[in-house]
């Protein structure tokens, strides 16, 4: 009996989570004229692909998408490389200044992002990167959180494994590349997902930096479309749906990485 109540509560909340998403999907296939007629779901025979067509033929949606992929892809790869390499150094080597580096990084993590907007804008302005994708990518290279994530996870890579690699003929970078990174695959997957979601959804900074509409990323572009193509709700929902898809796909691709306990059983009897 009690169990039934629990299930009902869970299902109720699940519905609350899913209904808006379902409505998004339905609206993406809803003709603009039908929005006022069928606020919830139109009959199946009235569903249309027109929104998607106008998205790609009349609006620069594809451009936004490409821009977003470029910016997010470049940012994630740079962040991944810098953070994992830095995290590796902090996790697996002893060297003078290590404590200081970690202390400074931790301290800066406490500072809320908006504090940096003004000086960063000034900096990017002086670097001549206003209204460019580089202006988004370059300041996004540093991911202190990611570096600590990698450090934390790489702490548990056994020293003997690194030593074995050294003996087997790896130089220090090859140890990182051939052993530590492959062993850290789950955390690499998790990091990529988090970093991708972060850049993909980044709004405030692109809103400040980007000016020309052919450079817009999806969040900026879609938001702008509301003003320009007034009341084209269908296209907006279709665009939103498509914009969300890459994250969902990536999530399902990388979900395995969390689960795979790769290091399990590799060390000790």
């Amino acid at each position: 009996m009690r169990r039934l109540v629990v299930y009902m509560l869970l299902v109720l909340f699940a519905l609350l989570c899913l209904v808006p998403i379902a409505w998004l999907v339905a609206s993406a296939f809803k003709a603009n004229a039908d929005f006022h007629v069928y606020p919830v779901v139109p009959p199946v025979d009235r569903l249309t692909l027109a929104n998607f067509t106008s998205l790609f033929t009349q609006m620069p949606f594809l451009r936004f998408m490409m821009n977003s992929f470029f910016v997010a892809g470049a940012t994630v790869i740079l962040q991944l490389f810098f953070s994992s390499l830095g995290g590796f150094a902090l996790a697996k080597y002893d060297f003078a200044g290590k404590k200081a580096v970690m202390g400074v990084m931790l301290a800066t993590m406490m500072i809320p992002g908006p504090v940096l907007l003004a000086p960063m804008y000034e900096l990017i302005y002086h670097m001549g990167l206003i209204d460019s994708h580089l202006g988004l990518i370059v300041p996004g290279m540093v991911n202190v959180f990611g570096m600590f994530l990698f450090r934390q996870s790489m702490l548990s890579v056994p020293d003997e494994m690194l030593q074995a690699a050294r003996i087997d003929g790896c130089n220090e970078f090859q140890i990182f590349w051939h052993v530590v990174m492959p062993v850290s695959r789950p955390i690499v997957g998790a990091f990529c997902l988090i970093a991708f979601m972060g850049t993909w959804n980044s709004f405030l900074w692109p809103q400040i930096i980007l000016q020309s509409s052919d450079r817009f990323t999806l969040p900026i572009g879609l938001n702008q479309m509301i003003g320009v193509y007034e009341a084209d709700y269908g296209a907006m929902m279709a665009g939103t749906l498509l914009a969300v898809l890459p994250v969902v796909v990536l999530f399902f691709l990388l979900q395995k990485e969390f689960i795979a306990g790769l290091t399990k059983g590799a060390v000790k009897g």
Binding site: F81, F82, S83, L85, G86, F88, A89, L90, Y93, F95, K98, V101, V104, M105, T108, I111, V115, L116, A118, P119, M120, E122, L123, V138, P139, M141, V142, V144, M147, E172, F173, F176
Partner: peptide, 30 residues
């Protein structure tokens, strides 16, 4: 192996100095 950690940390620390530490200080001044 002694220089390796510095090399590995260099890209991160350099970009951090430019896009992390400098803006913080500059922000105070601004």
């Amino acid at each position: 192996a002694r220089t390796a950690p510095y090399l590995f940390l260099a890209p991160f620390v350099l970009s951090f100095l430019i896009f992390g530490a400098y803006p913080i200080i500059r922000s105070v001044m601004l």
